[in-house]
């Protein structure tokens, strides 16, 4: 190659083509599909909790995209049905994730619907699972000599709480928990739902 302009024009043309194939075409296709009826937007508190989730970088260990039964036993683990594109229309930014250092949590609100469980687990994951390698988030909580009216007290097993007094959930912890509890895509999917069916066998009708 001996010319600058043709080199750059063709290089950009190839990139534009890739953008069309990987971003624009699937984007158009997904936008045409209906939003599942059971899906609702996040409430204000849930969205605040979601912002906490994003800012603490939870996505680096937790995916939010259960796989199909033909591919992996995600459903048997209680992680939910295979997710479809429509399940995410209210997600900004998306948090699909590429890692399962911890479990998939797209349906954690359905699998573990207890606020108290989540608060304990966020304060100290090893209070529930001794094998867990999830960070603890003590700064989402505060220690007080005793609970005031309206305070949410965190239930802790012997040896995990402070020597005296109680652990109270800060608003950040309550918001984050509200978001986790809102993660529930157990509603039925629309007929025209989109997902990668590449692991389905031919006799399954695909």
């Amino acid at each position: 190659m001996n010319r600058y302009l043709p080199l750059v024009v063709v290089a950009l043309g190839i990139l534009a083509f890739a953008t069309l194939m990987l971003v624009i075409a699937p984007g158009i296709q997904m936008a045409q599909r209906s939003v599942p009826e059971g899906l609702r937007p996040y409430s204000e508190q849930e969205q605040r909790g979601r912002d906490q989730y994003v800012s603490l970088g939870c996505v680096y260990c937790h995916s939010q995209q259960p796989r199909a039964p033909e591919q992996a036993p995600d459903g048997e683990r209680g992680w939910g049905r295979p997710s479809v594109a429509g399940d995410y229309v209210y997600d900004r930014p998306h948090q699909l994730g590429t890692m399962r250092t911890g479990p998939d949590i797209l349906n954690v609100g359905a699998r573990l619907p207890s606020e108290s469980w989540h608060l304990t687990h966020l304060y100290q994951p090893r209070a529930i699972f001794d094998w867990s390698i999830m960070p603890a988030y003590p700064y989402l909580f505060e220690e007080k000599p005793e609970a005031a009216p309206g305070d949410t007290v965190v239930v802790l097993p012997e040896g995990f709480g402070p020597a005296s007094g109680v652990v109270i959930a800060r608003p950040e912890a309550l918001d984050l928990t509200a978001y986790l509890l809102s993660l529930d895509r157990t509603y039925p999917v629309p007929e025209d739902a989109l997902r990668d069916d590449g692991y389905a066998r031919k006799e399954d009708g695909l």
């Binding site: 290089a11 890739a18 194939m21 997710s83 479809v84 990668d196």
Partner: peptide
């Protein structure tokens, strides 16, 4: 490199909630 590498990205979403054809393309 220009032609093939530019279209591999969606292999990060194999088995995910994206159209099958775009996964296969990548």
């Amino acid at each position: 490199l220009a032609l093939f590498y530019s279209q591999v990205g969606i292999h990060h979403l194999i088995g995910g909630p994206v159209p099958t054809w775009v996964v296969t393309l990548s």
